[in-house]
């Protein structure tokens, strides 16, 4: 069974249709890259999969391990293993990163009928994950993303992904705002999470990221549709020729 199946998905925001029948199938162990010009609907797709309010699905389906994802509350989806690393992570003043992650992890575990982690147990776990990603402990004590640099915010997303160990990870432009070293560390973090059970959907504008996270499939999105799919070489082709060739196809 596929892990994630998006079938002929049509999505409206207010009065505009943004996704016009998008299809994408992701199997366990696969890494898919989605590329496409600004405004083509990449973030919209990731939001709808994660269950962000404000989008109207007018047609199509999203199945997660064969279950209807669109019927589930967003927190239910998270507990089942859908993770979205945001393009623009928000700040939550007054809530320490440490407390936020502990609360969230325990909420997910509770929904799955697993035991709650005590503070020491959690601390041990989160410290180990932070260390593997080269994230200083101090960051955990600060308010969630408050005053974080763009790169730190992205690294915090990767930290959460590593901590929650989701089944499908959607990474929306995780490379934007990261310097070369940070990009390598974050990519190593993502690669470490690759496993035969887990799938990744990597949204990016740059082929460079795909040198670090080598995809099995590359999809080109334009104007709310997947207009071309191929192997990792498709990204190189795009790098050379740009998106214009697809504008007409859409």
């Amino acid at each position: 069974m596929s892990l994630l199946e998006v079938k002929n998905l049509k999505v409206r925001v207010e009065d505009n249709e943004i996704l016009h029948g998008l299809t994408l199938t992701v199997n366990p162990g696969e890494v898919h890259a989605i590329m496409g010009p600004n405004g083509s609907g990449k973030s919209t797709l990731s939001h709808v999969i994660a269950g962000k309010p404000g989008y109207e699905v007018t047609d199509g389906q999203i199945l997660f391990r064969g279950e209807d994802l669109l019927e589930m509350e967003p927190d239910e989806r998270a507990a089942k293993g859908v993770f979205l690393a945001f393009q623009y992570p928000v700040e939550i003043p007054g809530v320490t990163t440490w407390n936020f992650l502990h609360t969230a992890l325990n909420a997910q575990r509770k929904a799955r009928g697993e035991s709650q982690l005590t503070s020491p147990e959690f601390l041990k776990k989160v410290r180990a994950v932070a260390k593997s990603l080269n994230i200083p402990q101090d960051m955990l004590k600060r308010g969630v993303n408050v005053g974080f640099s763009g790169g730190e915010k992205k690294r915090n997303e990767i930290l959460q992904m590593a901590l929650f160990e989701p089944a499908v990870c959607i990474l929306d432009e995780m490379d934007s705002g990261l310097d070369i070293d940070a990009l390598r560390i974050a990519a190593d973090g993502v690669n470490a999470l690759r496993s035969p059970e887990r799938a990744m959907v990597v949204i990016t504008h740059y082929q460079r990221l795909l040198n670090y996270i080598v995809p099995d499939f590359v999809h080109v999105m334009s104007k709310g549709r997947v207009v071309k799919s191929g192997g990792k070489d498709l990204a190189l082709e795009l790098e050379a020729s740009g998106y214009t060739q697809f504008e007409d196809a859409a």
């Binding site: 962000k52 927190d75 936020f100």
Partner: peptide, 12 residues
């Protein structure tokens, strides 16, 4: 957006 960020991480 803040609420959605939290529920995406599993909070009700």
């Amino acid at each position: 957006d803040v609420l959605f960020y939290c529920v995406q991480r599993g909070l009700s």
